[in-house]
Each structure stands twice: as C-alpha cells, then as structure tokens.
Nucleic acid binder design. Structure first.
Length: 770
RNA sequence: GCCGGAAUGGCGGAAUGGUAGACGCAAUCGACUCAAAAUCGAUCGGAGGUGACUCCAUGAGAGUUCAAGUCUCUCUUCCGGCACCA
C-alpha cells in the first residue's frame, strides 16, 4: 500500500531523465524551415562562452525565454530557438594557459560539459543547428565577410593609440575599458601606439542612430546607443595663424559665441604643434608638456579635472570674425580624436574654457552673441557633423581567435587571402603564452603555408580578430549551419530573418548590439542580406543575485550552484522559480531566495497530487480567467504573474470536492512551457499518447468571464464604505440601485444630499455627497 | 554633471486612474506525531476598539480628478549608462 503511494509521488529525477531522452529520440524540437500553415518565429538568446560551468545566470538567460518560445510554439508558430557557443576569446584562452592546456582541446572539452548542463534545463533547443565560432566551418565565413568588407573599403589599416591591458597583454576596445581599467581583470589600462585593422563603423553612424526609430526596442537602449555614437552638429572654422599661410581649424557647436574668443587651444598630439615648433620661442616648455601628457595614463587624465597647458610663445591666431589676435595654447583637455583636435576658447560661455582661462590667467570677455548661420557664412566656415564613435579596431595580438585573412607581399602591401584558400586556418604549432607580441608570428607552419601559396618572401598577418566579430553574425549561421557554399542560403534567411525577438543582457547595449547592427548593415549594403536591421524586438534582462543581495562571486561565497538545486528539486522547479521572481524584460536584479524556490516545488507537488481529485466537477470560470491571464502575461514576459495565476487556480481547485479531467489537462498545457517535464509525465498519466508540447495552446471562453459575478467596492466621497456583488454584465442602473440599498450605505447617507453617483461596471461605485 | 530607470509589508513582488498589498517566502498559533520533518488549517502593513468597525498608510511635498501607488510639477535616495565630446 505504502509502496504504491511512493511510486505515485512526484519523482523529478526519473521524470526529467526519462522525458529528456524521449524528446530527443522523438526529435520533437527539430525545426524545419517551413511548415505549411505555420508562421515562423525566430527567438534568439545570446549564445555563451564555453566556460565549462553553467551558472544561475545562464539558467535565467536561457531557461526563462524557453518558456516564451514553448508557448509561442504551442500557439501555432514554427519557432526557432537555437543555441551555440561563442568559443573564441580570452576567457577560454586564459583558462587554457592557467592549466597548461591547448585552448582548442580545452574549449571542446568545456563545450561538451556545457551541452550536458544545458540539456538539463529541458529547453527546446534544436541542437542540430548548433553553431561554434571557433570551428573552421564557421570562421571560414567570418573571414569571407572580412574579405567582402575589404573589397568594399570598409576595412583599413591604421596606426592608432589603443587601450592596452598590461596583464592580459591585449588591446581593448573603449567598451572594454571600465573606469580606466580592463573590464576582465581590473588592471589599469595604458595607452600604446599600435597599427591595427579597422572597420569603418563611423561610416554608418547616422544610420545606426536614425534606424533605431523603427525598432521595437526599450527606450533606454536606444538612448544609450545614440549617446554612445554621440552625433553633434557644429561648424568647422579656421583661425589664421599670424604671419602664416596655414590656419588652425577648430570645431564648435557655438559659432554664435565667436566674439568672446580669448584663446585657441590645441590637443598636445595635434600635428600642427610639430609644424609650428621652429617659430616657438619656448620649445623646451612645450616639449616637456607634450612628454608629460604622453606618460599620463587615460585614467590619470580622466580622474584629474584640473586644467593644465602651455602657451605656444611666438605665435598667435587671428579671430576670423573680428581680426583680433589671440594666444595659442596646448592643453590636454582638448582631445585629439574629437572634432578637429582644436577648440576656440570662449571662457564666457564654456565651463571648461573658463576653468582653463582662470587657471592660466587668460582674459574672459563678455561680447554679444551673434547669429550662428551668419557667423559661419561670414568666416567661410562649414557645417559639419562629428561623432564620439570611433572606428572599430578588430586586431588582437592573441592566439585563440579568427585569423585575419591577410598576407603581405615583398613590398609589404596587404592582400586578402583569396576565398578559395578559406578557411585560413589557425595554426597549431604555436606557444600561445602572451608576451605582448602576436603568437601567430611564431608559427612556422603559417609562414610556410603563406610562402607556398603566394610565393617566397610573402608573409602572413599574425593578428586575430576581436571576438565581437564572431558574434556579429552568428544568428545567420543557425539558419544553415553546415552550408559549405555560403554563410547561409538566401531562402533560409528569407524564411527566418529578421529575428523576431532577441533576449539578452544589458551589458551588451553599446557593444555587441551596436557592432552586430553595423555588421548587418554592411552585409545589407553588399546585397548579401535582405534586412538592414537584424533584431525587430529586443528585451534586456537583469541579473540573479546571491541570497545576500550581492552579485554572485566565489570570493563572497554566495554562489548558487544550479546543478545542485536541479539535482535536489528538479529543473522544472528551478525554471519556474526563476520565472516567478519578478517580471522579465526589466533590468531589475533579483536575489535568489533558497526558501522561495522550495515554495515553487511545493506548488508542483500540489499539481501532481491534484490528479487524484479528477472526478465530476463543475466548469469553472476561474480556469478561463487563468487561461487569459497566462496567455497575456507570457506575451509581455510577465512570467511571475502568469505563475501566480496558476497558483491561484490550484488553490481554488484544492478547496473543490472534485475537478474535471479536461480542465486539469488544460492546466497541464498552460503549465507545460514553465515545467515541461512534470506536465509531460502527468499528461501521459492522463492517457495521452502524444507530447503535451505538441498540443495546441488552450483558448478561453469569453462568455464565461462576462457572466461571472463580481464583488465591487462602494465608496462615499472616495472612501470605501461597502461592497456589492453583481454580474459583470449588469446595467449601471442596477448596480447603482444595489449599492444605494446597502444598509451601511443608507446609514452613511442619512441626512445627506447625494450629488452624483459614479458607476464603473466591474470596478467601482462612488457616491458623491456633501 | 548629463542621459535612462526605479522607490509599495519583515522579504521577492501584485494592482486598464476605480476595493492597495494578488501570488510566494518568512513569522506566529493550531491539527497530525512519542517527537521532529513533511502535510493540512488559521493569523499575518500600523494604531485604536471585546466587537461590528474607525483612523493612518505606496520615498517627501504640492497639484489635477468624483476617485491617484498610477497623471503633472518640485525635491530626496538608490540602480544602470556616459562623462573635459568643444
């Protein structure tokens, strides 16, 4: 007797193991490109680094959106919800170095571990479409696209000042520098001169701003991207240098203040400084200042807002508006990379100019403002747009990345590696320990390969690409991951693009999300893809914090290990608890509550036991309310309230003497996207022979909701004084009559004049009196 | 400093301008048990009252409205992003 009861209790371990295997055997999550009568829906989540350790954040990122994808599937869409690995890059490489292992071997081992962990989520990933960016089959097309861009002048070589992390021995993008320190290791970043391959993202600056308007994206991301690109419209005005033919071109958005100019300031790095050196009478002071600036790190320059500078003695500039002579200074508050690297100093109207003038004892004069357009015309300036955004430097002096497919001839000219030689393989005969030089420069095989194909004396490029390149187009490869003749077939892209919904972390706002939009626009301009924007809708999620409310970290000892909880309580419980914590799609962070997760487990056990109550019951309006609520909430990523409404239904059913089998099965369907395993098991126990996940989404009966009685509040002058229960569809006169007939209300109104009665059916009655 | 959010019980959170605190957690009491766990039942914003009830309450202050957590203005605090961008 006892034994059979045990066998009927909820055993998550057996159930999850059994159904994960069964689904795989049945191939129910294999996605076809076209299914007659079904609309395609492409739901994308940011793929992951194969760190080999799946943490709670991964569950939140992948298992909760899986709820949405599953519901969409049951609602009749042909849903693609793929997964892959962003497998090149520093984390993998550093781990490999630490363990003295080969990055490739290490990476593939971690991926295998992670596949097992990812499968434990019970998500509907179609693994046959998996994409791995370090696979030559993948990076062949990364290189091919690079070649396309090279051929169309979107790629160039430039000597740039780069952010250099001395610890990681690598170049960092501005986006990867946080407070002047390396985003990954926290080491202060220094400036270093470095030739590198650049992508002309600035050419797309206007479109990257303007095309945001048509996207269904959160306002905050749009604003952040606009600000990051930093378009500003102003004028370039030339100040003549006295006794010189040459002038200093300044950029200003305040041409109207030109009468108030009392100096001109150049960035210390400005090329004109060198040219003027012969005229300057205080060369040593100027040189000294330039040298000092060079030794200052970006961090120093950012932290110190004190204005410093040196006047260039012996030269003066002439204000083109009024021909007055003003001194020329160099100052490190003027940025070489923005505008023209030179400003006209107007202390009266610009805070920074005033601080500088005060520090240096420069005059501050108050002159009337002029008409902007008039000034620009008068001084023959030109209206220009300038951007904060810089071109994208993609070179990395690292081993574990996509090799840049460039070779150099005997004169040092760069040539792309012809497409027929792609993939241009990453050599394996290399000691990849970082020492500030490119590991590929040490590959005998790469140099021999280059000479063999291109001729004696030809040399290979030894840099690899930033991994943001790899992730700029991965969503196309899911559509056709084994295509050997194109990155993806046109008809497959037609079937799926653009991506209907892209869910991911807020940290990618100005990095991945901007880079991949640029990459897609470049492909679009080359006629390679049909959509100029890849992601129709974007939803950013927040973080899962440790139980103490802090970000999970090993040092704080607050890391929640999902494998342990899945083992103890089951994947269904973990998925559902993460969904229940709060609304998805806000960047709010939620602390993991070890007790809270138990509450969800209790709910699933109640659902399990509820099966015993199946018998003769009445059709309940509550079920139809729940169908409506769950359907609407999933569509808005409010999984927490969807779960709450199912809990309310179960609470009600537990109080009922019996429930109908059909209604119970409807609940299983509503619950299926959240808890795919237990619902499948119960569905089969109810005698079904096909998967609950292949069943159609329940529809609610609106008539049942309209006929329902509802208790509404009765207020007097806005204060609640009673309540009446009336049908939702009752006419207002009837509701008013019922409200005024309440004994308590009568008592309150005794001796008072009713001035107005407001009746909102289904909501409220408010009696206004004196 | 600028831009974008947010602020509701002990906690996570819920509320098309319409009964504030759904749902869950924790807590307290009770049932079951030799006992504990589990489970089930009850209570659960504050103050007052035996009680039916009354008053107060959604960061602070004003305003609009029959009615404000929700709309408007001012302020405070917190979170995220950017920051000498001319």
């Amino acid at each position: 007797m006892k034994k059979s009861l045990d066998m009927e209790s909820y055993n998550h371990e057996d159930i999850e193991k059994k159904w994960q295997a069964q689904w795989q055997a049945d191939g129910i999550y294999t996605v076809k490109d076209n299914v007659p009568g079904k609309e395609n829906f492409y739901e994308l989540v940011e793929f992951t680094y194969p760190s080999g350790n799946l943490h709670t954040g991964h569950w939140y990122a992948f298992a909760v959106p899986d709820i949405h994808a599953r519901a969409k599937r049951m609602q009749g869409y042909n849903v693609l919800y793929p997964m892959g690995f962003d497998a090149f890059g520093l984390p993998a490489e550093n781990a490999a170095i630490k363990l003295g292992a080969d990055p490739k071997t290490w990476t593939y081992e971690q991926m295998e571990k992670m596949r097992v962990q990812l499968r434990s989520m019970g998500a509907m990933f179609d693994w046959s479409r998996e994409v791995v960016t370090c696979d030559p089959e993948y990076y062949r097309w990364t290189q091919w696209m690079f070649n396309q861009f090279f051929a169309h002048d979107l790629v160039y070589r430039a000597i740039t000042m780069v952010n250099w992390c001395p610890k990681d021995q690598t170049i960092l993008a501005n986006e990867q520098v946080v407070d002047g320190c390396c985003e990954r290791c926290g080491t202060p970043v220094i400036q270093r001169e470095q030739p590198q391959w650049m992508l002309r993202i600035t050419k797309y600056a206007d479109r990257l701003i303007d095309d945001l308007d048509n996207l269904d994206w959160p306002h905050a991301i749009k604003e952040a991207q606009k600000h990051w690109i930093g378009r500003s419209v102003g004028a370039e005005i030339s100040f003549r240098i006295a006794d010189h033919l040459q002038g200093i071109s300044v950029f200003t958005t305040r041409a109207d203040t030109i009468q108030g100019v009392t100096f001109v300031a150049l960035a210390p790095e400005h090329p004109l400084v060198g040219e003027l050196l012969p005229e300057i009478t205080n060369v040593s002071a100027v040189s000294h200042y330039i040298e000092t600036t060079k030794t200052k790190s970006e961090l120093d320059r950012q932290q110190s807002k004190e204005k410093t500078g040196v006047r260039l003695e012996g030269v003066v500039a002439v204000n083109p508006m009024n021909n007055e002579e003003v001194p020329i200074w160099i100052a490190d508050y003027v940025l070489a990379g923005y505008g023209t690297g030179a400003v006209m100093g107007v202390p009266m109207h610009d805070e920074r100019d005033r601080a500088f003038a005060q520090a240096m004892g420069i005059a501050i004069i108050d002159q009337p403002l002029l008409d902007r357009d008039h000034v620009v015309k008068q001084v023959r300036g030109k209206i220009v747009k300038t951007y904060r955004l810089r071109d994208w430097g993609i070179s990395r002096q690292r081993y574990w990345g996509t090799p840049i497919p460039i070779v150099y001839d005997l004169d040092g000219n760069a040539h792309p590696v012809p497409d027929e030689h792609l993939p241009w393989l990453l050599p394996t005969d290399v000691d990849h320990t970082p020492d500030g030089t490119a590991p590929l420069a040490r590959s005998k095989e790469l140099f021999e390969r280059t000479e063999k194909i291109f001729g004696a004396g030809w040399k290979p490029e030894v840099e690899t690409m930033d991994t943001f390149v790899d992730s700029s187009w991965y969503f196309y490869r899911y559509l056709d991951n084994h295509n050997g003749s194109a990155f993806a077939a046109k008809e497959k892209m037609d079937a799926w693009m653009p991506i209907d919904l892209y869910l991911g972390g807020a940290e990618h706002t100005t990095m991945h999300l901007l880079y991949s939009r640029f990459w897609n626009k470049a492909l679009f301009d080359l006629g390679l893809v049909k959509e100029s924007e890849p992601y129709k809708q974007r939803v950013n999620r927040g973080l899962i914090l440790g139980p103490d409310g802090n970000k999970m970290s090993k040092s704080k000892g607050n890391v929640v290990n999902p494998d342990e909880i899945v083992g103890r309580l089951g994947a269904d419980t973990v998925r559902m608890y993460l969904a229940f914590m709060g609304p998805y799609g806000t960047t709010a962070n939620y602390p993991w509550d070890p007790n809270g997760v138990v509450g969800v487990r209790r709910f699933l056990e109640r659902v399990w036991k509820l099966k015993q109550k199946i018998g003769k019951g009445a059709i309940t309006a509550q079920l139809h309310k729940t169908i409506k609520k769950v359907t609407e909430d999933i569509a808005e990523y409010k999984f927490n309230t969807a779960v709450a409404s199912m809990m309310t239904l179960v609470n009600e059913w537990e109080r009922a003497p019996a429930i109908l089998e059909g209604e119970y099965k409807t609940l299983l369907q509503l619950l299926a996207p959240f808890a795919p395993h237990i619902t499948e098991a119960l569905w089969q126990l109810c005698g079904e022979t096909t998967s609950v996940h292949c069943s159609p989404w329940p529809l609610y009966n609106a008539a049942l909701l309209v006929n329902e009685d509802r208790t509404i509040g009765v207020q007097i002058n806005g204060k609640l004084r009673g309540e009446v229960t009336v049908a939702v569809s009752a006419p207002t006169e009837e509701i008013q009559k019922a409200a005024l007939a309440l004994p308590r209300i009568k008592e309150f109104l005794d001796g008072k004049t009713v001035k107005n009665v407001i009746v909102v059916p289904g909501r409220i009655v408010n009696i206004v009196c004196e």
